[in-house]
Nucleic acid binder design. Structure first.
Lengths: 131, 131
DNA sequence: ATAAGGGTTACAGTGACTGGAAGGTCAAGC
DNA sequence: GCTTGACCTTCCAGTCACTGTAACCCTTAT
């Protein structure tokens, strides 16, 4: 099947699919005319990648997950470990953003937002510990 | 003052400071020997940038904030608007990560994590709606 | 005189794509 | 047979905000 159809089925862009071939993630056969020819197994890999990326796994993590996906003798322990790491990472990111949010919220609340130049946001950024 | 000291005072790397000059954010004078020479005002800009970047503002947003910072006739309304936009963006990101976290948490919880290959995480990624 | 520790430029690499140019292929309609 | 348009191909450049590396110059202390 052509790359265009593969794109529709996997909900990835044609560009992205070609990129995944560049980095040796999914390597379809070629037809005589040079067109890529995706098998059902290839499509499943693409869908797998689309979902894994959507869940925030990096390309390298996807590569690992994909090898587990294709390994009938995998242990679910290995998969779970990767997912747990990612979960912890997401937690850290949320905490970080939450802290940013709190800081920014306080600054926004304290800023009059009028025509005058006095601004606690600017003051804070400039290093003056404004209240 | 030399770039090394500027780096210490602003808590930015030397590389980053040079990069900020490349993209015309902070343009120090030059000494006769070609060394960059940072004024107190330059240092304040660098500190400003370090804090603004730390709060999640993009370089372009920093550029805008910096122009407001340097503008004595700014209105705090303009600053507040940028900060509010950023706040909304952070909120969106937190929501997104929260959704990811929930999905991943469910998957991790349902995975036995043993020697067997059966794995709801893999099943989910492969497109099978596993329970 | 030399060595350490600054400074300078220029170019390449990161991650995960995305955009664009220049061209080849295919199927449908005239 | 010809054209049109939609698809496909490769290759190169750009994104963001730096970071790494190489090759070289300058300053200061010994």
């Amino acid at each position: 099947m052509n790359i265009g159809e593969a794109a529709k089925l996997s909900d990835l862009s044609v560009k992205t699919i070609r990129y995944y071939e560049d980095i040796a993630l999914v390597k379809p056969d070629r037809l005589e005319n040079g067109y890529r020819d995706y098998s059902d197994a290839d499509i499943h890999c693409l869908i797998f990648l689309q979902r894994a990326r959507g869940l925030g796994f990096s390309i390298d993590e996807c590569r690992l997950l994909l090898s587990l996906y294709e390994d009938d003798h995998r242990s679910s322990r290995d998969v779970k470990a990767i997912a747990k790491d990612k979960l912890a990472e997401i937690d850290r990111k949320i905490d970080e953003l939450q802290a940013l949010k709190n800081t920014l919220k306080t600054l926004v609340k304290n800023c009059h937002g009028d025509d005058k130049p006095d601004c606690p946001i600017i003051d804070n950024l400039s290093g003056q510990r404004a209240q």
